[in-house]
Nucleic acid binder design. Sequence first.
DNA 1: CTGAAAGCGCTAACAG
DNA 2: CTGTTAGCGCTTTCAG
Lengths: 342, 342
Amino acid sequence: MKQPKRVTIYDIAKKLNLNPSSVSRALNNSANVSTTTKQLILKTAEEMNYKVNSVAASLRTGNNQTIGVIVPHINQNFFANVIAGIEEVTYEMGYNLVICQSHESAAREVQCVNTLTNQHVSCIIISVSADFEDPGHLESIRKQGIPLIQFDRVADELDTMKVLNDNESAAMEAVCHMIKEGYKRIALLEGPQNLNIFRQRKAGYLAALKKYDLPIIPELIVENAWTKELGATATRKLLNLSEPPDAIFASTSDFAALGALEVATEMNIQVPKQLGICGYSNESFTEITNPSITTIDQHSILMGKTIAQLYFSELKSDVSNHKNQIVTLKPELIIRKSTKRH
Amino acid sequence: MKQPKRVTIYDIAKKLNLNPSSVSRALNNSANVSTTTKQLILKTAEEMNYKVNSVAASLRTGNNQTIGVIVPHINQNFFANVIAGIEEVTYEMGYNLVICQSHESAAREVQCVNTLTNQHVSCIIISVSADFEDPGHLESIRKQGIPLIQFDRVADELDTMKVLNDNESAAMEAVCHMIKEGYKRIALLEGPQNLNIFRQRKAGYLAALKKYDLPIIPELIVENAWTKELGATATRKLLNLSEPPDAIFASTSDFAALGALEVATEMNIQVPKQLGICGYSNESFTEITNPSITTIDQHSILMGKTIAQLYFSELKSDVSNHKNQIVTLKPELIIRKSTKRH
DNA sequence: CTGAAAGCGCTAACAG
DNA sequence: CTGTTAGCGCTTTCAG
């Protein structure tokens, strides 16, 4: 593909018998240029179809108005919405987004971090992959002086800006709600415990049981039931126990809850009468299943906006007394038919 | 935020008493450097924690290994999946993605184009906004010598690379299927006709009617029924006609189909017995509604991969006999319960 | 195989 | 207010 020669500020300067720096000043709306010449420059720039080369500007200023985002998958509702929220704010500020997917792989996450740091992005926003273990690559971001914001799935031990959901209290609220609805043997579908969010949700589950003096029954806690299929398998196993649960809290996702619902339907077990089901994330389908599924909304778009706002507020804040702020959002329990016995 | 001084190739060169150009050669794995010095350079680069500055490299080479993507909304299933598909391929090739949302606004789309062209991205991939009228900004991309790939929603008249879905044949197949199931008064929910995709889907609908010698009934064609709410409103109106339709083809989206289904349920009209419903896009929820919704799958991830592959194949192809290739994918009719009378 | 030197396009001192 | 100059970090000729 042929690249036609692009118009530079030198071309404009030459045409007007001016100095490139004046042109630069005019284009950047600097005060140190007379309004008449500024007008003239802007007009001819327009005429000559001049476009800034922001790569050159970035190299010179060391600031490229670009924010890197790393998420496991961009085509998952929660992450897509968070990114949409981030973009809403960054767009207003004239910043661009470079988006990378880690595909839930730590190795790939490291590569994403490298490409972003090589590009000297102004900030990196990340939600870590499922097999996250070693925060070395995140530390290297900080070492290079690039602001880092972790959200949702984070390395707790790392002192960075964070935007979190209060998973524990949300999970607790959900399970308390189920208990109040009369469920007594509530099973938990749990996610990989190396991720903070799943640890917290489990903690909320346990706290709710404790609050109501219900026993913790190990056989009702199923590991790694993350997808619809795994949720279905887990549910089948649970419902075939000699003492099956009367409710399932799919703390991993609404997909697992959907798997549970399908198995219950298939086994002719009535939801919510014989079995209560609660998911997590408020995926759009939870509203239209039969019965509709109780779930927890994470305000994902708001979360994205909050993340971006956090960056910009830090940017203009006083450098000297800088602390890594942590913002925690409150998820919302959405009670639907799948847990309403009364 | 403090930016610690970054290690450059000069630092490495100085330490080793070499010339920066040798360091550059070693890092870029050039042939013109002895294996011993190459080893040495790579080792010390590692030790000194050197990271390339890809901004500087971009400025020098005029090639930044970055692809810009403009879509109406990143948090819509179809677009999120297309982007995921694009990313899968570009990642392998060491390219990055800069993602912009037009928010269905032509004005904002123009701005997105500007930021991307200013950044000298290697390629721009776009699906135009709903209020698209004037392809001027797309022409300016071409004028600047940046390869342009349009997908799905495209400006037909513009000679660029394109990756399309065969909307017309897919819509025709869907309507033919409904006719074969015995539906005779099939309504159409249509989208804004300034977008090629909705024109094509309408054409497919009309072609199917023609094929089976069914009359075109204007009162059964409803404009701009794009969302769930608009789909519901349209359906309510249709079902209250003196001669209501016996089927609805929601060519705009599955959301409109869902709205139709909800209205039918609410009015105690049996689907598929009294009313057939077919959507478009194969959103995940169409599988779990009651009854499940017949729809058209657009192979969105494949589409994304195809787009990226098209770019890379053009990249290495002979420049002289370059033609703007158009790839058309075949959507797939997914027949579910909402149209199965037999 | 290695060194020297120029320059991508822009911005930001510093002079005038 | 405008011009001069240097340089961001890298790649890439051209010499040697």
